[in-house]
Design a protein around this nucleic acid. Structure first.
Lengths: 205, 205
DNA sequence: ATCCTACAGTTGACAGTGTCATCTGAGCGC
DNA sequence: GCGCTCAGATGACACTGTCAACTGTAGGAT
């Protein structure tokens, strides 16, 4: 037998897994609450016991992904076998790799939180904190902190912010352009990896 | 009195204007064919006489926006009052400016075409060309050509591709991060404009 | 002038969707 | 044991994109 809390936690986990899987397979349009519920073994109304609405569910998925990304960068950063520059490359590749392997999820990471926070933040100020949509922002923050630490190991503390912002935005842009297929053309005669090389060369040279 | 062709062209124009307006105001979710039709003075079924489906309508909106962007960069590039570096700044600001002023449209520019082309290109190969979804890609191509020419004026022909790709992806990343609100935090202590400065300094210095 | 055709636009219908009010039933404190 | 709480089920509603069938008129053919 299982306690009620355990059952509820398992359902919530199953809902998140189902949403993540559907998002990866077919984008946000494919994430329907009915299908999410079905894959989690519940019906369409059940998600509303765990998330305010569909956007909250997707925001929770984004939060988990940010957490994974932050953990990964932390693991890279504390790997004694890598040099500082190799760690930087690992961090950049991590972000771009998500864009490449899971474009829908990647888009969610940078789109949903911003879209939500603009409106929901005001909403939370009125209704009081609910803890949910903040989670994505905090997780993204943690990723940025890890990334900043990696950059600091390469260019030093005082230049970390300046170069970190440039590196992060550039990596984000590379991922986005690659995702939209505008880097694959022979017009630019380059690749994401080559651009990362150039980027790293700029801050180390 | 108006001819039938004139009437149809006017309706198509009104549909595009309505879709553009709705997109700017409330994002893709707010663009409903019923509301688009209502604002254009027709009913919900009318758009299907001009566009295959909702995605085609949005792709047409994206194509028009790419055209405007390309025209703007061309105007900047051929402005005799500006230096080469000032032209580069103008081109970068144009892209970032769209991201700032019309985030939903900006997202459409880089998201929809890539998402569609991946699947639709195969579809067109079977059903024969329809001319519509290609328009967005061609317009985006024209923008990139203009941008490439601006970059060539600064760094020379042979380095234009290499630096052009880096500048374009970086600008895209800056726009995206600013849009998602992740540049506004005091963590980075920088701004989109400041990053553009750094970027230009890197390729000119 | 009359018929005919092409076609822009209308209308009714259908399958899905997110969301909510209401109901049900089982875990758990008393 | 009783009763409360809450996870989940269910019915309903408004709204969406999409298509088949229909209507009316511009404009060429006779």
């Amino acid at each position: 037998m299982v306690t009620r809390a355990e059952s509820a936690a398992a359902t919530r986990r199953a809902l998140l897994d189902a949403a993540t899987s559907l998002l990866a397979a077919g984008g946000p349009e494919a994430v329907t609450l009915r299908e999410v519920g079905a894959r989690a073994g519940v019906t369409r109304g059940a998600p509303y016991r765990h998330f305010a609405d569909k956007d909250s569910l997707l925001t929770a998925v984004a939060a988990e992904s940010w957490e994974r990304l932050a953990d990964h960068v932390r693991a890279v950063r504390t790997d004694p076998a890598r040099s500082a520059v190799e760690k930087l490359r690992g961090a950049l590749d991590a972000l771009i790799g998500v864009g490449r392997a899971q474009p829908h999820l990647y888009q969610l990471l940078f789109w949903q939180p911003g879209h939500l926070n603009r409106l929901e933040r005001l909403h939370r100020q009125v209704c009081g904190p609910e803890g949910d949509p903040q989670a994505a922002s905090r997780a993204a923050d943690r990723f940025q902190d890890e990334f900043l630490a990696v950059v600091a190991d390469v260019v030093g503390e005082e230049d970390a912010r300046r170069y970190g912002a440039l590196l992060l935005t550039s990596a984000h842009g590379i991922a986005g352009m690659e995702h939209s297929g505008q880097l694959g053309t022979d017009k630019w005669q380059t690749s994401a990896d080559s651009l990362v090389d150039t980027l790293i060369g700029m801050v180390t040279g």
